[in-house]
Structures are given as structure tokens and as C-alpha cells.
């Protein structure tokens, strides 16, 4: 672990140093703020950022992800149980990804107003796809031979589902969840840009109109941090639940 962390850490440090040097030489802080000025801004704005906007965005991300997980798993299981449902839904789910969600988002503001739900819908729309498709593929990946072997032991349908299909799907589900978690932050930010009264995405955009470069970046740093932390949580859960893979 400690060895694998050094190369990216080194690269990041080099990048930040380069950025700092560049920003100082350009010297237009409202367009290109330096990393140190962003951090200073983060500290200055700590009260509104951490007490008001971070909780607002976090609520969208968490609610959106929970809905995506429930809807995604539900849809995947439903499709895996019935081939006709699969035939009807699968193409729709794939084509739903062709819809430019950013373009649709204003409609959600129309429907749900400035409530949290207009943002949650955007988050759900972009995160349920990786969860659904991966979980579904995982449920399909259960080995046919193991299925037959369990039948010869007298297994019932639900035994095969819980003891074969679910364990086979779990690694795929986690891959999907890792993608979804990173997308959820983007979804929340997009939702907030298009209509919100609080939130990190909203705050960043408002600062844009005030030509305050550092204040544009400060909430983005927080957004990225949320994404990274969520990813690490999922990774930790994955390692705990898929112990057998760690031994490999």
C-alpha cells in the first residue's frame, strides 16, 4: 500500500507545484487561482462551505445513490428473473444513456422546483445505469455448471438465487457502484448548476459570476474530496465482503 501511494502522490505534488508557479507568473488570480490561494479561500469560506453547502450536496449524493442502488438492484433482479422483462427493459436502459441529461435537467427544475428532488433525479439518472447493468451482468455470470450441480443436490430456485447468483453478482455490483459513486458527485453538481439555492455546485457557479477564481475552485476541491472518500468507502466494503478475492 505505502509503496503504491508514492508515485501518484509524487505526480500530484509536481502538478500542484507547476500550477502554483504558472499561476504566480500569469498573475490573474480571478481566472487562474493558485493552489495556495484556493486553500486560503477554503479556510476563509469554511463556515458557509462546510455548514451550508457541503451538507446540501452530500444529501443529494447520498439520497441519489441510495435510490440508484435500490432501483438498480431491483431492475437487475427483475430482468434476470424474467427474459421478457429483460427484452423489454434492457434496450430502454441502454438508450436512456443517450439522453443528454444536462439538457433535460431544466425540465426537472420545472417539475420539482428548487427542492432537493430536481437534483436527486439528475444524480439518479446518471448513477443507476452502471449499477443496473453491472448487477445484471453479474447475475447472468453465475456458472451454468454450478447451477446444474446445485440442482443435482436438490436445490430450489431460491437456493440457486441466493447461494449462486448473488455471490456471482457481488463483484460486478461493486464495480458498478465504484463508477456510480464518482458519477454521483458530478450529477449533484450539474443538478445544482441548473437550479439550486445551496450546494457546492451552486456556490461554485455563483462565484463564477463574481469573477472570484479561488472561490470557484474551493467548492470543487470539496466535491472531489467527497468523490474520493465515497470511493474509498466502497472499496473498503468491497474488500470486506469479497475476502476470497483478496487472497488471490
Amino acid at each position: 500500500m505505502s509503496r503504491t501511494i508514492w508515485p501518484p502522490a509524487f505526480l500530484l505534488a509536481a502538478f500542484l507545484l507547476g500550477w502554483e508557479a504558472m499561476a504566480r507568473s500569469v498573475n490573474k488570480m480571478f481566472i487562474l487561482p493558485s493552489p495556495t490561494s484556493i486553500i486560503r479561500k477554503l479556510w476563509e469560506l469554511k463556515n458557509p462551505l462546510f455548514l451550508e453547502h457541503l451538507p446540501a450536496t452530500l444529501a443529494i449524493v447520498v439520497i441519489g445513490l441510495l435510490i440508484s442502488i435500490i432501483v438498480g438492484i431491483g431492475t437487475a433482479v427483475w430482468m434476470s428473473l424474467s427474459p421478457s422483462v429483460e427484452k423489454a427493459l434492457y434496450p430502454l436502459i441502454i438508450s436512456s444513456q443517450m439522453i443528454p441529461i444536462i439538457a433535460l435537467a431544466p425540465i426537472f427544475v420545472l417539475w420539482f422546483g428548487y427542492t432537493i428532488w430536481s437534483k436527486v433525479v439528475v444524480t439518479v439518472l446518471i448513477t443507476f445505469f452502471p449499477i443496473t447493468v453491472n448487477t445484471f451482468d453479474g447475475l447472468k455470470s453465475g456458472s451454468r455448471e454450478l447451477n446444474e450441480l446445485m440442482l443435482t443436490m436438490g436445490a430450489r430456485k431460491q437456493d440457486i438465487f441466493f447461494k449462486l447468483l448473488v455471490p456471482s453478482a457481488l463483484p460486478h455490483f461493486f464495480s458498478g457502484l465504484k463508477v456510480a459513486v464518482t458519477l454521483s458527485v458530478i450529477g449533484a453538481a450539474i443538478g445544482e448548476w441548473l437550479g439550486a439555492q445551496a450546494g457546492l455546485g451552486y456556490f461554485s457557479r455563483r462565484m463564477m459570476t463574481q469573477f472570484d477564481g479561488a472561490a470557484v475552485f474551493a467548492p470543487i476541491v470539496l466535491l472531489s474530496t467527497i468523490g474520493i472518500l465515497l470511493f474509498l468507502i466502497v472499496k473498503w466494503l468491497e474488500n470486506r465482503m469479497l475476502k476470497w478475492r483478496k487472497h488471490k
Partner: peptide, 11 residues
Amino acid sequence: YMPQKDLLMPW
């Protein structure tokens, strides 16, 4: 029934 491959569940 013991199938041709050992078919143990890896998990």
C-alpha cells in the same frame, strides 16, 4: 454427482 471439473465455489 461429482462433475468432471471440481466446481468449487471460489467465494
